[in-house]
Design a binder for these strands. Structure first.
Lengths: 106, 106
DNA sequence: CTTTCATATCATTAAGTAATGATATGAATA
DNA sequence: TATTCATATCATTACTTAATGATATGAAAG
């Protein structure tokens, strides 16, 4: 095992590194939601939301359960909320820099 | 401003979402380092490290200062360390899932 | 003032990723 | 059991990104 291999950690953060996925996570901050609710709130297409939910699920960030025709998604670990809040503190200090960062388009 | 636009947050996490960049950040956890030290420690090419340092710098995660021929990089905000540690707690619970996630290759 | 050392920049290439539209699945209801 | 509703899957396309190798910059030493 290479000591420089942070693939797992990198994948975890990649789960958080997309605007659509973050908006999905944000809709789950207070409580679980059906896919339909998430689609409405994020204003993204159903298939796009579904793709991203799969990603978040694979990365262990969210759980889901079926109830009749609906599937409810929720944050898997309460520490995710804590993490997002702490991140916000760091981000607020550096947001001006980030906005001028040309390396990433999205 | 679109309420679903988390571009800034996404870019911030993108800074953390690469194995090479994480290994660079890890070398800065205890103290500042020259680019040369980072190259040695991460076993990456000089230009690759330099590219990633620029990225981390643009994203506001690191600072640098010149001293003679060397340039020293350091973590810009102590909360970054805290953030990385908290992340590690979340990641440790979900690493098995993440490793089986097929959506991302790197 | 030329060479060397440390680092940055840049173009290129190979690879990875997001969004879309079409289709499939599976549960509930008629 | 046919239809509808909610969600997932899949292939495609356009776009984004990481790594590389070559070159440039800028400080210090000879």
């Amino acid at each position: 095992m290479n000591k420089n291999d942070f693939t797992v950690e990198a994948k975890f953060f990649r789960g958080l590194s997309d605007s659509t996925r973050l908006s999905v996570l944000l809709t789950l901050m207070d409580r679980e939601r059906t896919v339909g609710e998430i689609v409405t709130k994020t204003k993204q297409s159903q298939s796009n939301v579904s793709n991203h939910l799969k990603c978040l699920s694979d990365c262990g960030l969210v759980n889901n359960r079926r109830e009749g025709k609906n599937i409810y998604y929720s944050l898997r670990d309460p520490k995710t909320k804590k993490l997002l809040r702490l991140s916000q503190q760091v981000i607020s200090k550096v947001s001006t820099d980030i906005m001028t960062c040309l390396r990433y388009k999205r």
